[in-house]
Design a protein around this nucleic acid. Structure first.
Length: 520
RNA sequence: GGGCCCGUAGCUCAGUCGGUAGAGCAACGCACUUUUAAUGCGUGGGUCGCAGGUUCGAUUCCUGCCGGGCUCACCA
């Protein structure tokens, strides 16, 4: 029998003894006067004398995280909301039964205590307990108290243990909640309406990615888990909801890495009568505000570097390639070097001659090659928050062509937000010409035929919606997981997702907790 | 999917140049009415991830598999 199974049996037996003392094994409620953080906040500055007259009577509840018995007295620490408070239990104060109960407690049990505050010889704020109420037994042993839970896999698989043992993990998820709260507040204050659009789509649209497929039995149709809410949100703008946003999950059937989880959370919002330049200004304000709401400052520390959300730089994609062009690849390009397939190919070959190789596909559209060039040359350098704007049309099926006549044919009004080396957002002036949109979809279909599984599918209803008139609109998506990584200095996306996707354990491997009476 | 690394007690880790394993904490027993890594004495606990191979003998060496981490590719 495994050790934890033995402990399980032992503790079930203790639970019976606790019931024999007149306590309920699984009581329904406990009345407290304070939370542990409240007590620490209110009384940490009080001296021993302050606490003596008048006496401060309190009752609190929490999980036992350490316990020390010394004959007819003992100490323990209770934890609540990641904070700990010591309690002092004496036989002559809690009585025979109370002390019997105390001796049957284990690390991990939840209890409630009633008593008064005092300071010990070592001046630690402590509750002198007059009554203990048993709340629940921890039947499985918690990790040891010095090192806590380190094993990364167990931390993700048993997040409840991770949260109990590692207060800093709790802090990350509290900050994550603040990111979302701040975002909502900012958007609500600017007149945006929060909406919910379908998660199950007949056509996986709005982004370039492989979808998950599911099936609805009654309708007997295959559906895709959404890869983006984009096309539905824009339908709402067509319907006169000028400012809408949605904060929810997207699903992409692709790789898992420190920056990718198959389900991830995205903010998408749309602002009618605005273009991508308005969007950059708006986003700069919003990101600075979120950073301040979460950390008290626009300056974030990520991966050993300072990332200033109060100062977002702006570069076009081509400017970024020029700016970060490596010395070993010869003289810096100029704007004319992006103007023809031959010149772009020459840039790739110059780069590849001295650097990690860009996978060059001569049959790919020029715009795709330029985007590849950008990824290799510039992206790794984008630590300070930066808007990279003006994207190739070839990789932007839903963005509006640039307004300048000389660039109108091949470039679109789109930008992405980079920070800490992560891509955290994507925005554009929305393409609202239904006939141009149809041509873009058709172009995507030919990309699909060329072998690109992720190319966008045709969506006739979306074109119909545009035909009713989408006003000039700018839209943006922000990856909330990655933004949270930046604001909490988390290197892996799994550290900002409570239950990241892991391969399920085999049933045989999964240790079974047998609750059958008397099982051995 | 490729490359590199990891898997030993509930937890954190040692270790075995091939002879079936240890520590601390946790657990159990006794003592102890201001401790806080409480202390002192004592006790129990392991298919060394799984399966093959080599060997007189494998936790150790080899191969495969399972799970995980980092990284590259794809992507946000």
């Amino acid at each position: 029998m495994a050790l934890d199974q033995k402990i399980y049996e032992l503790r079930k037996d203790k639970l019976k003894q606790i019931e024999a003392l007149g306590q309920s094994a699984y009581p329904y409620r406990y009345e407290t006067t304070h939370s542990i953080p409240q007590i620490l906040g209110e009384f940490s500055a009080k001296t021993a004398q302050d606490l003596e007259s008048p006496k401060v009577n309190v009752s609190i509840a929490g999980r036992i995280m350490s316990i020390r018995v010394q004959g007819k007295a003992g100490f323990a620490h209770l934890q609540q909301d990641g904070k700990r408070l010591q309690i002092y239990v004496r036989l002559d104060f809690v009585g025979e039964k109370g002390f019997q109960l105390y001796k049957l407690l284990d690390i991990g049990d939840y209890i409630g205590v009633k008593g008064y505050l005092f300071r010990t010889r070592t001046n630690e704020l402590t509750i002198h307990v007059e009554e203990i109420t048993f709340l629940v037994k921890d039947l499985l042993p918690l990790p040891e108290k010095w090192h806590g839970l380190q094993d990364v896999e167990t931390r993700y698989r048993r997040r409840y243990v991770d949260l109990t043992m590692n207060p800093e993990v709790r802090e990350v998820f509290i900050k994550r909640a603040k990111v979302v709260q701040s975002m909502r507040h900012f958007l609500d204050a600017h007149g945006f309406v929060e909406v919910e659009t379908p998660m199950m789509h007949p056509i996986a649209g709005g982004a370039v990615a492989k979808p998950f497929i599911t099936h609805h039995n009654t309708l007997d149709v295959d559906l895709y888990l959404r890869i983006a809410p984009e096309l539905y949100l824009k339908r709402l703008v067509v319907g006169g909801m000028d400012r809408v946003y949605e904060i929810n999950r997207n699903f992409r059937n692709e790789g898992i890495s420190t920056q990718h989880n198959p389900e991830f959370t995205m903010l998408e919002f749309y602002m009618a009568y605005a273009d991508y330049r308005d969007m950059m200004d708006f986003t700069a304000q919003m990101l600075a505000q979120i950073a301040i709401d979460v950390n008290g400052t626009a300056m974030a520390h990520f991966n050993g570097q300072e990332v200033d959300f109060g100062n977002i730089q702006r570069l076009t994609m081509r400017e970024a390639v020029i700016k970060f062009w490596p010395e070993n690849a010869g003289p810096k390009p100029d704007m004319d070097d992006f103007s023809s397939a031959e010149k772009i190919a020459a840039l790739v070959h110059r780069y590849n001659a001295a650097n990690p190789h860009i996978p060059y596909d001569p049959t790919a559209p020029d715009g795709k090659t330029i985007a590849e060039l950008f990824e290799f040359v510039a992206e790794p350098h984008l630590i300070q928050p930066t808007f990279i704007y003006d994207f190739p049309l070839a990789i932007s099926p839903l963005s509006k062509n640039k307004r300048e006549p000389e660039e109108n044919a091949n470039w679109v009004e789109r930008f992405e937000i980079f920070a800490g080396g992560l891509e955290i957002g994507n925005a554009f002036s929305e393409l609202n010409d239904p006939e141009e949109q149809r041509r873009r979809f058709e172009q995507q279909l030919s990309e699909r035929a060329r072998g690109d599984e992720e190319a966008h599918q045709m969506d006739e209803d979306y074109i119909r919606a545009l035909s009713y008139g989408l006003p000039p609109t700018a839209g943006e998506g922000v990856g909330i997981d990655r933004l949270t990584m930046l604001l909490t200095d988390s290197r892996s996306i799994r550290d900002v997702i409570l239950f990241p996707l892991l391969r399920p354990l085999n049933r045989e491997e999964e240790e079974k907790i047998d609750v059958t009476e008397g099982s051995k």
